[in-house]
Design a protein around this nucleic acid. Structure first.
Lengths: 214, 214, 214, 214
DNA sequence: TGGTAAACGAGACGGTACGTCGCGTCTTTTC
DNA sequence: GAAAAGACGCGACGTACCGTCTCGTTTACCA
């Protein structure tokens, strides 16, 4: 639940609302920001996402549930998405992200992982959040960068980690492999397309090119 | 008001709001649907998308610009997305979709096509529309199926067409290749990631596996 | 409670929100204004004034109590004062205004009437409303004209009526006499100064100049 | 913070916020009240009234313009009105109040004075301030006494001064005469009624009864 | 001369109300 | 019956002030 938890953050950027610790204590004036409020807001936002994609996320609702004034929410976050992104970043709302196993057998590992993701997705966990986040991109003023950082980048990163250690044909762009799997998966989630064994097989086949140019 | 009618049609499916002509003329009573209104609405929706991703698309706005009563819009389309989808389907708002060329050289053709797409995207044409459409998915009640049909399917379809005739290694799932390029491209558009030569090269390399198992 | 009741209206001007009946029925289009809502709003405003000068009159509160949407209130009345003025004009909120008796004895009649007013005022009836109305003048955008019409004019008018028939010295400006009594009374109300017998006597003496120039 | 202290003083009474000098020096501890702040606040309040009846007077605004923290304002004045009243009392915001001349000719003097007031009022000087002050009465918690002291009493007082020396019919209540002129004038200001020659004549006629019972 | 206690600036906080926007529905007259 | 017009209940928006509450920082006094 800590701010600190996103420090280790893989790629996910710092969306610190910045109680910037570099500011010398002696120069911080006025009543300090209430950490209680901050946490309450993030938690409220997270909880309001839970009910299976309510998409019922309103600033008003967040403030109410957090027991905080609307102004306080607006003071620190310009938009819903900003709240959401920070909530994810700070770990209040976790996008379930199992690391791909590494048994040495890339194809098997990927398949296993994709099946795990399928379960996760069918459970509805990721779907609603992802949709909300991606949906938020539409909001004109919204920061696709941030959403990318929270939604896509971690996925890509953890996949890349697996590919990095894999035995592949020379010259294969591992970055691209990770990106491909991530993109495919996200599309699947967004458009609620089922994740079938056939699809998994085909994707693995495409991406696990250990024997190429062998 | 039918949805069932969009079963037919492969990709760029018919989402006609269907003044179903199979209904015997003798049974159609009262004032017939105004084609003028229908067109005005679709045109208005299209135009309201134009200003570089205003995302200012409201039912109220559509009706106003179309010079049509709100009720008339609601009578024939349940949601914004429905209007948008039909507008795309009816060609009022075209997603620019060049067909991949077929010079025999798959790799070159793909690269050419991707570059063309990059231009299109940088022009901003596709971005806003795509974002709006995908964004619409978030709207809880929204029909990701329809959006898929309008946004993803055609892309996938036209790519598949090119892969179908390509000389590839045996057993390669051409469907998956098309799907991969489409997914990658859409992700790129959604998150406003630049389309670089490196990325194109890597993607082509991944996907144009003519020489596999050679 | 009727609109019609203010037609007879003495001086109090027409602040009709104008369901203008001169508009030919054939040209009135769209859903007609809900009389139920209109009345509910005016009644709500009146009721919210009751509790002895709550001054708790908010647009939000009026709408809520009337069981009407805020928008509906704003659609027909630009400000609180407008609502209040119409409520008074339409008789939902009456400023108690006993007519001065006419026994032939002006001095006695005035004294009687002033005592009656004193009772009314001590009852708190008029005070809060008057204060609210006059207070409203401060609101920059507010229409002192309207308030004058509702608060001052009727008072002046009914006094003038009594002076008109009185036997006074020649050349006395009866308008001025009515105006003087009204002004004095209103000041007394506004600043919560007590109405004493001495004050009544002095005022009557000033104003009932039957014997002047005799 | 005393109220009692304004008992003394005839008209433009002292509503000093009282760094009461009767408190033994030995008991005054801590940082003393900043006179600079006090003046800045009063000046700010005065200035914010200037722009022709902005009525834009907010505690927040006063503090901001005074370069003072909100707390400091609240520490010394409970309400806006308190600030305003003190500002008037301390002469930061003067209600222009010419003394009625005394040439011996009461009627002429009154007429002259009323004309002078008319000019003042048309200039807008008094109007906005008066409206603001009277408006403030509405604020439930507000102290009509104080406002009376600042707005009405001085007017009444200076008029009374003139009537005191005037030659009038016996038994005429000079208090009442002063009160009448004051009330009439204030009503005129509040409701923005024009001050015409006719009105002046009539008022003078009513009030300057030197020759009565002659 | 150094504590100490109140005043001060800054500014965050929980609130209430504001006035507006868009939703989807309803009610009327006109075509 | 469809359509234009437009009022309606509703819910959320983002903003403005309210009056209160910490903070860290003066600044005079008293010991």
């Amino acid at each position: 639940m800590e701010e600190s938890s996103d420090v280790a953050g893989t790629a996910a950027a710092a969306q610190e609302t910045s109680d910037d610790p570099t500011v010398p204590a002696s120069r911080r004036r006025g009543r300090p920001r209430s950490q209680a409020s901050r946490e309450a807001v993030l938690r409220a936002a997270a909880e309001l996402m839970e009910p299976a994609g309510q998409a019922k996320l309103t600033m008003e609702g967040i403030a109410a549930r957090a027991g905080v004034s609307k102004q306080t929410v607006y003071r620190w976050w310009r938009t819903k998405v900003d709240v959401l992104v920070e909530a994810v970043g700070a770990g209040y709302l976790d996008i379930p992200l199992p690391l791909p196993p590494d048994t040495g057998d890339l194809r098997a590992d990927l398949a296993t992982w994709l099946r795990a993701m399928a379960v996760e997705i069918d459970g509805g966990g990721a779907t609603h959040l992802s949709q909300a986040l991606v949906g938020a991109i539409a909001t004109a003023d919204s920061r696709s960068q941030q959403i990318h950082g929270v939604l896509v980048a971690p996925l890509r990163h953890s996949l890349h980690e697996r590919f990095r250690t894999a035995v592949l044909a020379e010259g294969v762009d591992r970055e691209m492999l990770a990106e491909t799997v991530a993109a495919q998966l996200i599309m699947r989630v967004l458009f609620a397309e089922p994740i079938t064994e056939e699809w998994i097989a085909a994707l693995v086949e495409l991406v696990a090119q250990e024997r190429l140019h062998a």
